[in-house]
Design a protein around this nucleic acid. Structure first.
Lengths: 255, 255
DNA sequence: CAGTGGTCTAGACCACCAT
DNA sequence: TGGTGGTCTAGACCACTGG
């Protein structure tokens, strides 16, 4: 294939996708320009059309290009989607945006799982979890309180970490705990007493909440987390298209 | 192919995907069970492995099954992802969850676009937009205030609609305006005076905000909307995996 | 080691768009 | 009507998992 796309390792279609992403975000085809034909691109990269289409599918999902039968692909924008890993790890995310992450472990206890944890972590009632509460900071400023529950198998590893450890997901990966899938639910919730104390906000004031259940590659839950962000500190962004959507909106019970 | 999957129209891989989705959510393989081999499934449906893999890719994106080299696919859960159309249209969404949607047009004006609208709708400075403010209700209860701006081309159609029209996207589709891509940003924002009045909440209280830019199949913006939800009424849900992610988290400017 | 999903190829035909 | 992306096929080889 063309020399400019040999830079990184991994499957061919990913290298092609990265090269195309670079070309698009650098403006080679203009802000709303047309891409060359699939046949032309395949010839250029010296790959089959199937492989090229795998590459384009990535850019399609990221919202970088359109795709429509009968017409050439059009540049949609310069979306900068984060990797799965960056989305899960506060530490990796912070560093990827050039900010210095900080963490303060407020508490870490081992106790029987409550009913919500049993359901989310698929545990038998009575099983034990490790429940951690951490304050997260960006450049020293409090941003988020993280309530995370781990099943015993995972939690025992977390418990061995030093109190001032910044990244936990790194450590877990070293012990063979891989995160593969996550389901996120985003809404608004009032601050409880602990949130208020750690974040220096009024009790009952609104926080942006992200609830997240992460599973490994076998579908076994490895983490259940409720992250409470101070308003105005972060926003969540999702791309969506006729071709693929993993986003939905839920009605919550009226109280 | 097998008779049970001839029900719907459309491409073969979609019909296979829907049949498999049905099989999985009905529990045929168990809550965390293994799927048959790709080869077996392809034989069962009498399709090529490539087509079968297209079907499985859909279920993968929806978070229904895992996929990992060397092992069979495992049932992850029974995620119920909404269609793109349901995600965009309040009316379609409400009906899909069995609730009766209502709408009250608060104002609809034609005026020059402000700087944010120019950027979001890719308009020349000075171009005109139609700006609508609508109160949305579920079963008669106020849920959300929608601030939507349309470029003139689209807005002139919206302006022709009766004041009590519930669904606008239906009408636009009839006039050849198709929604193809959307970018969503979700965060928390204080209620302004108008929000407070329409939603009967205190001014300055927190609302869940969804900002959305929708484009047609040529990448041309057709809608820019800021939806302000009362806390506790809705939540947004996204699935995410090592294989594909269209989700990211942004830091907002500190004020 | 055998089984399984991941990657890649080469070619065919079709549906849709613009002209 | 010609160009383009969407769909589908048949086959090959590889990387990884698990016994």
């Amino acid at each position: 294939m063309a020399p400019e796309s040999d830079r990184t390792a991994g499957p061919l279609y990913r290298r092609v996708a990265e090269d195309l992403r670079q070309a698009i975000t650098s403006g080679r085809y203009g802000p709303a320009g047309q891409l060359p034909t699939e046949a032309e691109l395949a010839r250029h990269y010296d790959v089959s059309r199937g492989t090229l289409r795998q590459a384009l599918a990535i850019l399609r999902t990221d919202g970088l290009v359109t795709s429509r039968r009968g017409t050439r692909r059009v540049v949609l924008g310069t979306a900068r989607v984060q990797s799965f890993s960056e989305m899960l790890s506060f530490t990796q995310w912070a560093r990827s945006i050039g900010q210095e992450p900080g963490g303060l472990l407020h508490s870490l206890v081992r106790r029987p799982a409550d009913s919500i944890e049993c359901e989310q972590l698929r545990l038998e009632s009575g099983a034990e979890v490790y429940a951690a509460v951490r304050l997260r900071t960006l450049a020293g400023t409090p941003v988020m309180v993280e309530h995370t529950s781990y099943p015993a198998r995972v939690g025992s590893l977390v418990a061995e970490l030093p109190f001032d450890a910044v990244s936990h997901s790194d450590k877990l990966r070293q012990h063979g705990i891989y995160f593969a899938d996550a389901q996120h639910v985003i809404d608004v919730v009032p601050a409880d007493a602990r949130d208020a104390k750690l974040l220096s906000c009024r009790r009952g004031s609104s926080l942006l909440r992200e609830r997240r259940r992460t599973t490994d590659s076998n579908g076994i839950p490895v983490e259940w987390s409720q992250d409470h962000y101070l308003p105005g500190t972060v926003a969540f962004s999702v791309h969506n298209s006729h071709a693929s959507s993993s986003l939905s909106r839920h009605a919550r019970r009226s109280r």
